[in-house]
Write a protein that binds this DNA or RNA. Structure first.
Lengths: 187, 187
DNA sequence: GAACCATACTCAATGATATGACTATCCCTG
DNA sequence: CAGGGATAGTCATATCATTGAGTATGGTTC
């Protein structure tokens, strides 16, 4: 019962098709909610049946038709009810950390390689978030934007994503360097 | 196929019963892998049937008997194989972030309350990690421990958990303060 | 002595997630 | 004109995770 709310929150910014939502969930929303397209299409169907969103068909000639969805007043109420009940901290699940936990009893080389690769990915995500943040705030400084814009939610979640990836990168770099120093390996 | 490896990694530190593992997964391992006791018992059964761990019964007189599990060579090989294949970044899922994403269209009061509560929880976790880190390294400095100990995996994952919670706390505090400043509310 | 907590675990039902395969159209490139 | 990529979805299934209830024993507390 939770992807539901993530989809409703994403649809607050405007009308989107399942396909567009899938892209949004692949970049910005993936900070706080991961979902593959199949899940989104299924959830959109359920949400529409529940009356929390409405879809309208858009005929296109240069590409397949699509359905655009909007949040209904009932959907907004559902989101409000969701925000009112205390939430539990997220359940983390990270394979790379499992490997590091076990690294003393394994060959460290592949773990080091993965840490270094992950550091690069995290650095790329930091830059992606920076671009998104700049785009969201336009000409305004962050200070001004945060105090005066009427749509700060996406900016704040991006800030969180940026912080997380920055932290992640630093940790990966440090751990990779340490493991290299402890057990020098050729590659 | 992933709780499997988290359990194997946790069992590298010694013999544990399902009940003990449940406690470990409730505190230290919950950094990187969350699981409720029922999942652990089920997974232990599967792991034993697959020959990746072995259990031995321990008769107790002051409390119910228990079964202690150890990783077999096959289990270690399974872990090594797991560490060798590149892993995908984790799939984050955080209700609180969904609420912040939508906060512009909702009553901010309950969201602010949850952010402030979460900041307190995160601060407590930082302290818990600090205690765990001190306990793991004993008298040694972190520097010395990291370079000379033969069991740094759990320490490194704890460091990551500490970083994450610290970052989380700061973000929660800042966002709560900002939302309060934007829309002054009585409570 | 009743209530409650800690240890130690099991079962069942539902709900969520992950994975892979599939359809269909249009555009662009070589 | 063949192939690949982008758009826009659908279907099926198997595994995973979550929730709630239940069993049993012993120790501690009020």
């Amino acid at each position: 019962m939770a992807l539901r709310h993530a989809v409703l929150a994403a649809l607050l910014d405007g009308e989107y098709s399942g396909y567009q939502l899938a892209k949004i969930f692949d970049v910005s929303c993936s900070n706080f909610w991961y979902a593959v397209p199949q899940q989104l299409y299924a959830e959109l169907t359920k949400l529409e049946r529940a009356g929390l969103i409405t879809g309208r068909q858009v005929i296109q000639h240069d590409r397949p038709n699509k359905r655009l969805f909007t949040v209904t007043p009932a959907g907004l109420a559902e989101l409000a009810a969701f925000a009112a009940v205390p939430s539990k901290p997220s359940s983390t699940r990270e394979d790379l950390l499992v490997m590091v936990q076990a690294v003393d009893r394994l060959d460290p080389a592949p773990v080091i390689a993965q840490l270094e690769e992950r550091a690069v990915i995290a650095a790329a995500k930091v830059e992606l978030f920076d671009r998104m943040l700049r785009q969201l705030r336009g000409d305004l400084t962050e200070e001004t934007f945060l105090h005066e814009s009427n749509r700060v939610g996406p900016y704040l979640t991006c800030l969180r994503g940026r912080r997380f990836e920055q932290e992640n990168r630093e940790w990966c770099v440090q751990v990779a360097a340490l493991l290299r120093a402890r057990a020098p390996v050729s590659r």
